[in-house]
């Protein structure tokens, strides 16, 4: 399994075989607070990196979620419809949003790795 990569907008993606699982980071879920609704894209949708593909709503705010890489949506996490709070409990695991079949397997390597993301977060919150 490849390492987890992060965007500056706090999405994460992790390649497993030829499919990349994507979600929002633990930092993002904490910042949003109690998550009460997630709107997910249709399976089969072709997406471009940076394109808005999902919406996450907390008790405070609604935020857009962007595709971290180019590709095709091949699965979405239907469990989030009934239990959106899973994102708060396990943002990096069971709280995943969607899976993308990458158009280019190397594209994710341009994103931040865990260590770089952590120092990026430190820069946001000195």
């Amino acid at each position: 399994m490849a390492q987890t990569r992060f965007t500056k907008e706090h999405e994460w993606t992790r390649l497993d075989g030829d499919v990349a699982t994507c979600g929002i980071s633990d930092y993002a879920q904490k910042a949003l607070g109690d998550i009460v609704y997630v709107e997910l894209p249709p399976v089969g949708k072709k997406v471009k990196q940076g394109e808005q593909v999902a919406v996450v709503e907390s008790s405070k705010a609604a935020s857009e979620v962007y595709a971290p890489i180019d590709g095709e949506i091949v699965a979405v996490n239907d469990n989030l419809a009934g239990s959106p709070g899973t994102v708060n409990e396990a943002a990096m695991g069971d709280g995943w949003f969607f899976k993308i079949k990458p158009a280019n397997a190397e594209q994710a390597d341009q994103l931040m790795n865990e260590a770089n993301y952590q120092s990026y977060l430190k820069g946001l919150n000195p």
Binding site: E9, Y27, A31, G33, K60, A61, Y66
Partner: peptide, 23 residues
């Protein structure tokens, strides 16, 4: 992620891509 709106205080769409602060 980008912030769209927030609650309980009137505020139109916010464009904000640098940080996730729901705040």
């Amino acid at each position: 992620m980008r912030k769209l709106w927030l609650i309980f205080f009137r505020l139109p769409v916010l464009i904000w891509r640098r940080i996730v602060c729901f705040g």
